[in-house]
Simulated assay, not measured.
Amino acid sequence: MKKFHGTGVALVTPFNADGSVDYDGLRKLINYLIDGKVEYLVSLGTTGEASTLNKDEKKKIWEFTAEVNSGRLPLVAGIGGNDTAAIAEDVKNFKVAGYEAILSASPYYNKPAQEGIYQHYKAISEQSELPLLLYNVPGRTASNISAETTCRLAEDFKNIIGIKEASGNFDQFNQIMRDKPGDFLLISGDDPVALPMISLGAVGVISVIGNALPTQLSAMIRLCLEGRFAEAVPLHLELVGFTRLMFNEGNPAGVKAALEYLGICGDSLRLPLVKVSPGLKREIITATNKITAD
């Protein structure tokens, strides 16, 4: 699964001012990221505002993304939720050409026990024709996939190939690296901790800030994967402040403000998400200009 080493970008979904999907902006974004030398693209994860899109919109976005990408980079489709039967059916029926894996966030809101999380992914795994990446993001789901459950799933289902880990818990990262099968992928789900996670053995990041700064981020991640941490640290530290701005008023509002400044797409979102405040937008523009000018 070397194709999922390096920098993956969780694509934003550009919207027009009237709330419709901005396909011209999505085309520009995909080409911008490919030119920025990222390794793969994730369509309709959390950053893509998937929860505000209906099934027809999702299918059209997946198809459009594959068409524009035209085989240039590996593609991952985000399919998650808190109704196991519905997600398993969606995964079973996912027939969009050009995708090489599915990323599925753990169930949100209903807070299942670890056995429930295991059975949830078991049901999905049994229906999927594509490899699966688990996604642990307790800050959004209100439940954690424990290291024990992650490694149990990795051992029991060969099509579960890795996890996007966004718990921020380094003890958990250590346990996963110690106990996982050798070919199971640990991927950072948080931009600021990608560097230290790679030092533990993670294979890269699925990034938010990579939407705006693909060249800078992917260069830093490649240095880390080559073991050149002394060279990577200054780049990492420069990006940490930028990342903080991206999340000050929620994701993906911050990165969409940066993308608007860069001329890639607008900064519109679908409710309940709203644009960043004018003051934060000025800070984001200043930071984006500084990093891209260096």
Rank of each mutant, 00 (worst) to 15 (best):
E89W: 06
N211D: 02
G201E: 01
R72W: 11
D191Y: 06
T243N: 15
R228M: 10
L259E: 09
P278H: 04
A97F: 09
G254S: 07
A123Q: 13
S218H: 00
I285P: 06
G98P: 06
A154F: 01
G25C: 14
P138I: 04
D22P: 12
T141M: 08
F64S: 08
A257N: 08
L185G: 07
A10N: 09
P214Q: 03
M246W: 06
A293Q: 15
T149M: 03
E67W: 13
P138S: 02
T7K: 04
R27G: 11
A293S: 15
F4L: 08
R282K: 15
V274Y: 10
L223K: 14
H5C: 12
I161V: 12
N248W: 07
G8I: 01
A86T: 13
G25K: 09
V208N: 03
K158G: 00
A258E: 00
G81Y: 03
N31R: 15
Y99I: 09
E249Y: 05
S106P: 04
A212F: 00
D156R: 06
G168L: 02
L239V: 06
Y40F: 15
S125T: 08
G71V: 10
L44M: 13
I206Y: 03
I206H: 03
K275C: 09
F184K: 01
T141H: 04
C265W: 08
D294M: 12
I284D: 05
S143L: 07
P196S: 04
L132W: 02
L153V: 11
P234C: 08
S125W: 05
P74E: 01
A123T: 13
V42I: 11
P272S: 02
N211S: 06
V91K: 07
C224F: 03
E283A: 14
S104P: 05
N69H: 14
N136A: 11
S20G: 13
G139D: 08
L133M: 14
T13F: 03
L11A: 04
L245I: 05
G201V: 11
A230C: 03
P192S: 05
D267R: 12
P196G: 00
G168E: 05
E148T: 15
D156M: 08
V255S: 00
K37H: 15
G19N: 03
L217E: 12
Y40P: 09
V255K: 10
K37T: 13
S167R: 09
I163D: 00
G227N: 09
F229D: 06
K290D: 11
R244H: 13
L44K: 13
L223N: 12
